[in-house]
Simulated scan of single mutants.
Amino acid sequence: MAPSQTLRRAALTVAPEVARISSRALARRALEVTDTQKVTLGVIGAYVVVIALLWNLPYIKWILWPFKMLVIAFHEFGHAITACCTGGRVKSISLDPHEGGVTHMVGGHSSITLPAGYLGSSLIGALLTFCGFNTTASKVASIVLGVCFLLTLWWARKDWLTYLTIGLAVGLLVACWFIAHAQALRFVVLFIGVMSSLYSVWDICDDLILRKVNESDASQFAKKYGGSSQCWGVIWSIISLCFMVAGIIAGVAAFPQTTAEMNEDSKGFLPT
């Protein structure tokens, strides 16, 4: 047998084995948690504990108030953007100092717009949590947030609380770009992501289980499409938690860089 044929046969024999080994190695690497990611996961755990403790403690809970208003803005943005995407028109968005909000819209498909408040804010939270694993991704996320904020301001129609909430959020994000090579921005984006994910679940439980609010997105959905508001609330809560878990797993798989590598990469994207 000619040497070239022997080499070809050897290559054909070895190549599949190399591919299998490489795929197994990539799978192990994708699931392996680096030291930097362990810190990030620890921060997420700390955020969950802090948010849970501060949520209802008298007086201290006001520390979270600006962030609660921000994620309520995400909730209303979910209603608004899906209304636009399904042929509707947004008349206005307003936030209430007592941690409420309302989106006035005409048209749109209610089967999408009604759950889009809870699920939209939890999806935004999951995406922000995902981006919080990497500095450059956090920069991109903050820019996307800025665009969403501009749309929300356009729909706010001179609602002062919406203007104030979004103005403070934009100021915080811009300031964090200039702290420790935007490392501070990464942890702020991560906090907003965790807060948004948890708030979505808590809001559903608070409205439908603890307070049993007569008029909520879930109750309106149940009237139109059947089932009970509690049933839809549980389903939406499960989906919201799945979004959060998926965001964390995706962040671990996609961003294995160390802090030094993230800082170096971030210098190539709008350096500060």
Rank of each mutant, 00 (worst) to 15 (best):
S138P: 02
F269K: 06
I248L: 15
I60Q: 13
A260K: 06
C205K: 08
G226K: 04
S23A: 11
L164S: 01
T13M: 03
S197N: 07
T136E: 02
L128E: 03
K223C: 10
W55K: 12
R157E: 13
L210W: 07
R9N: 12
I93R: 00
L190R: 00
F178R: 09
D217G: 10
L54C: 15
A73H: 02
V147W: 00
C242T: 06
D265W: 00
T103E: 05
D96Q: 12
Q230V: 10
G251C: 12
P115E: 03
V213W: 15
A116Q: 02
W232V: 08
L270V: 03
A83E: 00
P66H: 14
L119R: 04
S237I: 00
L41Y: 09
L70H: 01
T162Q: 06
K223Q: 13
S23K: 04
L70R: 01
L208T: 09
V252T: 02
F74W: 07
C176G: 05
G78D: 04
L123H: 00
V201S: 04
T135W: 00
S4L: 12
Q37G: 03
D96Y: 09
V140M: 01
H181C: 10
T129C: 10
I93G: 04
L208S: 08
R28K: 13
W65K: 11
